[in-house]
Design a binder for these strands. Structure first.
Lengths: 195, 195
DNA sequence: GTTTTATCTGAACAAACGTTCATATAGATT
DNA sequence: AATCTATATGAACGTTTGTTCAGATAAAAC
């Protein structure tokens, strides 16, 4: 038995990534076997190695893709205006972007310890780029006197942590709509950094 | 080969818990083997089964112990006073308690998916008890007119998420002292829920 | 229609997994 | 001093792990 009907690199490749994303998010990197991923794709385990060098690289690529999509998407719609408008845009963007891809978000936060040191460093750099975006807004607002935060760096981390929390409980079929969640969190963030 | 010098149940038992706590936090439940835990204790893998029925129960007990210590400690020093004073106490307590045991906190959040359904339910109940404590404060404050939150439940989750973020970056040798961190976060939380 | 190439199978590898158990002995009890 | 028991060892178990590779065949190129 060998090559099967309808086998294509450009189909199997993305399917492996999708299956790995789902399974890693569900059970954790270490708890998922290559055979489970292969079964989800509908292929034998050996076939995976036509697309990835090893399991570690598969994890790294998922996280790297996620972080780069985050940065690219953010840059594409990074708004202008006064600091308060920019902060509101950031809050709305962050919530929406992260709620759209809960699996990738979960992995990007939870599986950091399963990266090799070099891979870990790379992902942390990308995360730093993203946080700097918010930090710039808060610093500009503080300089302009419209914000008052005791510590810009801590406020950045505090706001992001608060927003990330949404992913742990939000359900699209739940009590609140996405718009309502955005409004509630924007209200809290705005007041938290207000002058 | 057999029982070794200085072998004692009341010593080995806690040492297993301590070793498992450290290793699970470092590498994740699924990535840690019973042999690694045993090696850290200085014993063979088989000896672990004099103290725990299986690996799953070991994880559950760690999380249960953590949550019950959290609730007991909180109850013992749960203050009185107006809602603002109670909220300040909660913020300070939460930060301090969680920074004192980063490994247990990490496990209690990250390894939920590795619990059996019954064990998961039990831990979530305990977490709910803790969150209710904060929610009561926010509701009382809202009723008294000193707080203004768009949604009590979301404010609870938002505040806890923000506070939990401290554990991801705080270092006792870092730029800020524990007192300073508490002050910064109290400032942000106070404003976020202010009327 | 023939040849080439990309894609997959299925078996194989050594290593590691959680758990069990017969056996040995240090320390407690008498 | 003799006996008992709690606490350990170390080998063994069947399974699963990530990864490799020779061989097979569908699809693409000629």
């Amino acid at each position: 038995m060998a090559r099967t009907q309808g086998s294509h690199s450009d189909i199997t490749g993305p399917r492996i990534q999708a299956a790995a994303l789902k399974l890693f998010a569900q059970h954790g990197y270490a708890a998922v076997s290559m055979r489970q991923i292969a079964a989800q794709v509908g292929v034998q385990a050996g076939a995976l190695y036509n697309y990835i060098p090893d399991k570690q690289t598969l994890l790294f690529r998922l996280m790297q893709d996620h972080m780069e999509t985050l940065l690219d998407t953010r840059r594409a719609q990074s708004g202008q205006g006064d600091p308060e408008a920019r902060l509101r845009d950031f809050v709305r963007f962050h919530i929406r972007f992260h709620l759209e891809r809960p699996d990738a978000v979960f992995i990007a936060y939870m599986e950091l310890r399963n990266l090799t040191p070099e891979n870990f460093t790379r992902i942390e750099e990308l995360r730093g780029d993203y946080e700097r975006d918010l930090e710039d807004i808060l610093r500009d607002g503080s300089a302009a006197g419209v914000f008052s935060v005791p510590d810009t760096k801590l406020a950045t981390l505090g706001v992001i942590a608060m927003l990330n929390g949404v992913n742990t409980w939000y359900s699209s079929s739940g009590r609140l709509s996405l718009d309502e969640v955005e409004a509630v969190y924007w209200s809290m963030v705005r007041k938290a950094v207000a002058a």
